[in-house]
Simulated assay, not measured.
Amino acid sequence: MPTTDDAPDPSDADGLPTMPATAWAVLGTLSFGEGLSGYDIKTWADWSLNYFYWSPSFSQVYSELKRLEKHGFVESDNGDGGARNRRVYTITPAGLAALRRWARESEVDRPVLKHPTMLHLWMGHLSDPNRLKEMVRGHITQMTALRDGAAERAENSCREPSWAYSQIVMEWSRRHYDNEITLAEELLEQIDAAGARFDSAAKQEGTGLPIPLEPGHWKSRA
């Protein structure tokens, strides 16, 4: 009986494997005309995918490469046989055909926003304005580093014609983080007012939790 790792991926009605986006992203790094080691793929993902999607761990990269080899979408060899002797992966004709289909035909899901700073702010009634502003300033610092990194990568992409689409994605990423900074700066101006409004609410004895004016009113607005 095959293990979970050995079990084949299901396929859609047209025979395209229903692999996770992680696998297609790893395969995508091999579609720019270069053979890459697993280390190279991780480095490239950190350099580019990290700014608009995510950056896989090394274990994810090698797990997906194993899956892609099983499908015949990549092949590997020992590269140039140098001192480090890394396996180099290249996309196969079958892999390129599958990747073209996925890029053109797959449904585009809605973006998933998981914003840790906003989660803390959403529970701001359990914190205090000064601590919340400290968190938002830390967020601005992170976003500034990402914005500057995306700007650098957009500029570096100018040198390589095959990165034309990568360049516009990096430029979009720069603008995205710039907008995120603007929104966070607006929050800094709003936190004190939100704190004052919350302070005006009646509180339960003992817990300090608010006493709702209209318990359950959110149900009619859900």
Rank of each mutant, 00 (worst) to 15 (best):
R147N: 06
A201G: 00
L209Q: 09
P210Y: 03
K203T: 10
Q167R: 15
R153E: 06
G206Y: 00
D192K: 05
Q142D: 07
K203W: 07
E180V: 13
A164I: 14
P212S: 04
I181Y: 02
D178Y: 07
A196Q: 12
A145I: 12
A193D: 14
M143E: 13
L188N: 03
V169A: 08
A201Y: 08
P210D: 02
V169L: 14
Q167T: 10
A164T: 05
S166R: 13
M143L: 14
P161F: 10
C158S: 07
H139E: 15
H217N: 08
E186V: 03
A196E: 15
A145D: 06
L183P: 00
R147W: 07
C158E: 12
S157A: 14
L213Y: 01
Q204S: 07
R175N: 03
N156F: 04
A202D: 04
S200A: 15
A151I: 01
K203D: 09
W218Y: 14
I211C: 01
D148H: 01
G208N: 05
T144F: 06
L146K: 12
I191W: 02
L183D: 08
A154V: 02
N179S: 06
W163A: 15
S200L: 15
T182P: 00
D192N: 09
N179C: 06
L146T: 00
T144G: 07
H217T: 14
K219R: 15
R174C: 12
E155L: 10
I181P: 03
H139A: 15
R174L: 06
A164L: 09
A193S: 13
